[in-house]
Design a protein around this nucleic acid. Structure first.
Length: 494
RNA sequence: GGGCCGUUAACUCAGUCGGUAGAGUAUCUGCCUUUUAAGCAGAGAGUCGUUGGUUCGAAUCCAACACGGCCCA
């Protein structure tokens, strides 16, 4: 018999023995009156004599993580969802039978304890146990007590195990929740209304990406998981909600990487009577407020790089960045033909209908993006690659748009919204021909209802999307998007 | 899709020139009432990712495949 089978057999035997003795191995008759963190918070600084003078019993519950057993006494550490505490169990106190039962418990079992607080010889706050009750028998052995679980694949596949044995992982997800909470507070305070718009859409719009397809049986219709909420949020701006936001999942049927998960969380918000310039300031304030509240500083370190979030952030024109940062001579950047040739020589594949604009943004991805470590707004995006953005009043070839880069990656994308329905229709139709020419990322149909909404009149507005997962990566110094998503997509095991 | 790396006991990892499997933790047994990855003594525990190939002999060399990681597209 393999060791694994043997351990499972032993534990199942213990389970049967417990039942035979009338002990419920999955009892739910114990209510803790404190969390461990509450106990540490309230009593962690008291001296031994002060603790013993308390004359108070505590009811605590948690999973047994470490055991140091002697002949007639046992020390163990147990943890709940807040922290970890030592318990001291003595035969003299519990009696022979209960002590023997406790000795038969395994690492991983969940137990309720009743006891008083004291300090051990080494000064550790400890619960002196007068009673205990088994709450859940664990049938599988935990990973090693010291190294925890390091196998990256298992950590992602069995996140519950990762969380049990690697408490530092909690921190990231607690911080993730805090970041989202802080963003909500920030936006709520500024009069933004949180809304929920369809995740299943008949025409996937608002971005260029390959969508997931699904099917609704009763209506016998094809639906797509949304690639962005944009077109629905703008309908709400038409409807009169002047400030709206949504924090929710988008789905893109693309590859996986340390920066990409097929479902990811996006904040999108829209503000009537604002421009993309207003949103630059708002973005600075938002990110800085979150960083200050979360970390207490604007000087952060990401994977060894020092990043200073202090505003104002650098603003640079796309073309200028190609020259100043990407090292492409100004004459080449200005020369449409020469730039397209350069892009091709760098391996960029231009599809029918794509030209100078696409070459600009692709060369930016190749030559500039990774080098924008400090927060930088990039401006002057080509109209060709920005089908939902308002054209610049000064130059119709570029749009009123920025992207924000921090730590060499895109963190946000924002623009003044195109609210001219005639222009919008023309741009949709250009996308349609791109789709017909084989571009799977372009929408397959014109969203007529969205155009109808625009025809009723959408007030001038600006909108922005911020990738929450990437923001969380930045603020928690996490190298992979899988470290900030509880259950990242993995290929099934065979 | 391409390149590189990884996959050995339940966990964390060794394994030299190709000679037939090791440690620590965990588990089980015994001793032990202030331990801190407790200690001491003993025992059991393996489809070396899978499939083929080379060889007298493969965890080790070769190939394909699977899953994962990093980088690139």
């Amino acid at each position: 018999m393999s060791q694994a089978d043997r351990i499972i057999t032993q534990r199942r035997q213990k389970l049967a023995d417990l039942r035979a003795r009338g002990v419920d191995p999955f009892s739910n008759r114990f209510k803790p009156d404190h969390t461990i963190a509450q106990v540490i918070e309230a009593y962690g600084s008291m001296s031994g004599p002060e603790l013993e003078g308390l004359n108070e019993t505590f009811r605590l519950a948690g999973r047994i993580m470490l055991v140091r057993a002697f002949g007639k006494a046992i020390f163990c550490h147990f943890q709940d969802g807040s922290s970890r505490l030592q318990a001291y169990v003595q035969r003299q106190v519990l009696g022979d039978e209960a002590f023997k039962l406790f000795k038969s418990l395994d690492l991983g079992d969940i137990v309720g304890f009743v006891g008083t607080l004291f300090r051990t010889r080494t000064g550790e706050l400890t619960l002196s146990v007068s009673e205990f009750i088994l709450l859940t028998k664990s049938l599988l052995p935990l990973p090693e007590k010291y190294h925890g679980l390091t196998d990256v694949e298992r950590r992602y596949r069995q996140r519950y195990l990762d969380l049990i044995v690697n408490p530092q992982v909690w921190q990231v997800f607690l911080q993730r929740a805090a970041i989202i909470r802080l963003i909500r507070q920030f936006l709520d305070k500024r009069g933004f209304l949180e809304v929920e718009t369809p995740m299943m859409q008949p025409i996937p719009g608002g971005a260029t990406a390959k969508p997931f397809e699904t099917h609704h049986n009763a209506l016998d219709m094809k639906l797509y998981l949304r690639i962005a909420p944009e077109l629905y949020l703008k309908r709400l701006i038409v409807g009169g909600f002047d400030r709206v936001y949504e924090i929710n999942r988008n789905f893109r049927n693309e590859g996986l990487s340390t920066l990409h998960n097929p479902e990811f969380t996006m904040l999108e918000f829209y503000q009537a009577y604002a421009t993309y310039k207003d949103l630059m300031e708002l973005t600075e304030e938002l990110v800085c407020q979150v960083a200050r509240e979360l970390l207490g500083t604007l000087q952060i370190t990401y994977q060894g790089a020092d990043i200073d979030l202090t505003p104002p952030w650098r603003r640079i024109d796309l073309r200028q960045s190609l020259t100043e940062i990407g090292g492409i001579p100004q004459e080449v950047v200005k020369d449409r033909q020469a730039l397209v040739e350069l892009a091709k020589s760098e391996g960029v594949v231009l599809r029918p209908g794509e030209g100078y604009g696409r070459a600009l943004t692709k060369l930016f991805d190749l030559k500039v993006e990774a080098r924008l470590i400090q927060p930088t707004f990039v401006l002057g995006y080509p109209t060709e690659t920005s089908p939902l953005s308002r054209k610049s009043d000064d130059n119709p070839e570029v749009v009123d748009r920025f992207e924000l880069f921090i730590a060499g990656r895109e963190m946000a994308n924002a623009f003044s919204e195109l609210n001219d329905p005639i222009d919008q229709r023309a741009r949709f139709e250009a996308q349609l021909s791109a789709h017909a020419a084989g571009d799977e990322e372009a929408p397959h149909a014109v969203d007529e209802d969205f155009l109808t909404a625009l025809e009723y009149g959408m007030p001038p507005a600006a909108g922005e999307g911020i990738g929450i997962d990437r923001l969380v990566m930045l603020l928690t110094d996490s190298p992979s998007i899988r470290d900030v998503i509880l259950f990242p997509l993995l290929r099934p095991e065979r």
